[in-house]
Design a binder for these strands. Structure first.
Length: 306
DNA sequence: ATGCCTTTGAAGGAG
DNA sequence: CTCCTTCAAAGGCAT
């Protein structure tokens, strides 16, 4: 098998970019989307020297997209803070058409395949703890309302003058323009259905063919501020850790105000190829989803629970 | 000098 | 099965 990386994936025999050697630092990939690599070595190879070269996780579709578009956004917006850039990229990502996203999903999939072939026994867990992310532990005392309190730096939100770029956190409204774009409508993640790019999966929630929608919708308490969803950091159960926008439980309304999203829908059971284009429901759901999150990321008060 | 912030997606652990 | 947690990139900023 071993299908040769049709794209810029590394050729065989070459140290995969995922490997970050303390001494070896590959130059910024010349390829457009080159897999992970170089990086500032998050792992400060302690003196103890990492026994292993520290194999990094393969980049996912969004990460690949970021790598490719970051420079562009930086040039356009003249922004430098990655946090702000990422916010913009996140919004642009949602604005991408299915085909466009599918391209990255495919790349990511190939990356993963190659990665697994190169490092069969490797597990993402191997890197756990290397970053020492402590994510502010949720204080037991802190009330959930702490969301307004950000002990750490507030979100970077790029300057307003940069309106040329999508306003990431502008939140005020300008945010919705982009995602709301009908044409894009978004998005569908497409999922890894390389064979049928056209069938790209509708909901961007199911990137995994095997099925795993998980969070995104459900997740009442989590609701990651920024709109998103995902978890990522924060969340930690109610934590007060929300980085920038912490929405108190129940605020997102995703449960109370939007019954639609109450259940993610068992797409998981569906085969990627089976998923047909975004049906009205999906779009509606997505739309609501995005609108809710993006247009009013902070609208905490939608409906307490009534 | 190190971690945080920010984004989405992937993957594994825990319940 | 569902939910949660961590890491992947990256560059300014905070500690």
């Amino acid at each position: 098998m071993v299908t040769p990386p049709s794209h810029s994936l590394h050729q065989t025999g070459i140290p995969h970019p995922a490997i970050v050697s303390p001494a070896i630092k590959q130059e910024p990939s010349s390829d457009n989307i080159s897999p992970s690599m170089h990086a500032k070595s998050p792992v400060p190879s302690k003196k103890e020297e990492d026994k292993k070269p520290h194999i990094k996780k393969p980049l996912n579709a969004f990460m690949l997209y970021m790598k490719e578009m970051r420079a562009k956004v930086v040039a356009e917006c003249t922004l430098k803070e990655s946090a702000a850039i990422n916010q913009i990229l996140g919004r642009r990502w949602h604005s991408l058409s299915r085909e466009e996203q599918a391209k990255y999903y495919e790349l990511a999939r190939k990356e993963r395949q190659l990665h697994s072939q190169l490092y069969p026994g490797w597990s993402a867990r191997d890197n756990y703890g290397k970053r020492k992310k402590r994510k502010r532990e949720n204080k037991p005392d802190s009330k959930p309302e702490d969301f307004s309190i950000r002990s750490k730096k507030q979100c970077v939100q790029y300057l307003p003058s940069e309106k040329m770029c999508d306003s990431p956190a502008s939140s005020h409204g300008s945010m919705l323009d982009s995602p709301a774009t009908p044409s894009a409508a978004l998005a569908s993640p497409a999922a890894p259905a390389p064979t049928h790019s056209e069938q790209a999966q509708p909901l961007s929630l199911t990137t995994k063919p095997e099925g795993r929608i998980h969070h995104h919708f459900s997740v009442p308490g989590k609701a990651s501020g920024s709109a998103s969803s995902s978890s990522s950091s924060s969340s930690s159960s109610s934590s007060s850790s929300q980085p920038s926008i912490s929405i108190p439980v129940g605020t997102l309304s995703s449960q109370s105000s939007t019954p639609i999203l109450t259940r993610p829908i068992p797409f998981t059971s569906l085969h990627p190829s089976m998923l047909s284009p975004p049906s009205s429901f999906h779009q509606a759901a997505l739309h609501s989803h995005h609108s809710l999150f993006q247009s009013q990321p902070l609208s905490l008060v939608t409906k307490p629970t009534e």
